[in-house]
Computed example of a mutant assay.
Amino acid sequence: MEAELVALAASGASTLITLMVSDAWAQTKTRLAAVLGRTGDERETLRELEASRAVLVSALAEADDATVAAVEGEWRARLSQLLLADSSCVEDLHFLAPVPGYAVHNNITGRVQAGLLIQAGRIERSTFHTLPEQTA
């Protein structure tokens, strides 16, 4: 069971790093701070998450892979400690686990057009302007 928790912490840390630089971070950070802050101050945990995010964003901008790995390692250790101390947190951290077998496959069929194609999970508040079709 311990090996499974360590593996979960590793995949969770990897997902956390991905979330830190995504649009989902705003929703994720509060949830994560609530789980990680169980044993301490939730607000302090939120500050630590935001500080890690700032370091990560800077490291990615500078292509500093060592710093990115260090941030991920720090959160892997923190998640491992949490899960080993209280395995009931597994359920609360399920949003960090990758969905097994989840993949997206798209097929585009029909006549060939020179136009705009957008593939996204969700788009909000966007306006797209296109030129009118020209007839020959």
Rank of each mutant, 00 (worst) to 15 (best):
Q113L: 13
E74I: 08
Q81R: 14
T30W: 04
A61Q: 12
G121D: 15
G73Y: 08
A66S: 11
R53M: 04
L49D: 02
L32I: 00
V99F: 04
A9R: 09
E44F: 04
E48R: 12
L32D: 00
Q27Y: 00
D23N: 15
Y102K: 14
R43Y: 03
E133V: 14
E91N: 07
K29V: 10
L19G: 00
V6G: 09
P98V: 04
Q119L: 15
I108D: 09
L82G: 05
A97D: 05
G12E: 00
V21H: 01
F128S: 07
D92R: 12
V68P: 03
D23I: 06
E91T: 13
T15V: 00
D86L: 01
L131P: 10
V6W: 10
V99T: 14
A10K: 11
A34D: 02
T130N: 13
V68M: 05
P100G: 05
A24Q: 15
V104S: 12
A9T: 07
M1K: 08
T109C: 09
P98M: 02
R31L: 06
F95D: 02
E74T: 11
V35I: 11
S52V: 04
Q119C: 10
S22P: 12
V55N: 06
L60M: 15
T127M: 05
R76I: 01
S126K: 02
N106Q: 12
E72C: 05
L83E: 05
A9H: 10
L96Y: 10
R53V: 01
L49H: 03
E4L: 13
S80D: 10
A61Y: 01
A103H: 13
A69S: 09
A9F: 08
R38F: 07
L8M: 14
G121N: 15
A10M: 01
L5A: 02
A33S: 14
T127E: 09
T45D: 07
L46F: 11
L117A: 10
C89Q: 14
Q81L: 13
G12M: 03
T30I: 12
L5R: 08
V112C: 03
E50A: 08
R125N: 15
S22K: 05
K29T: 03
D86S: 04
A3P: 05
M20C: 01
E91C: 02
L16N: 00
V90L: 04
Q27E: 13
S11E: 11
A120T: 11
R125Y: 12
R47G: 02
T15P: 00
Q119P: 04
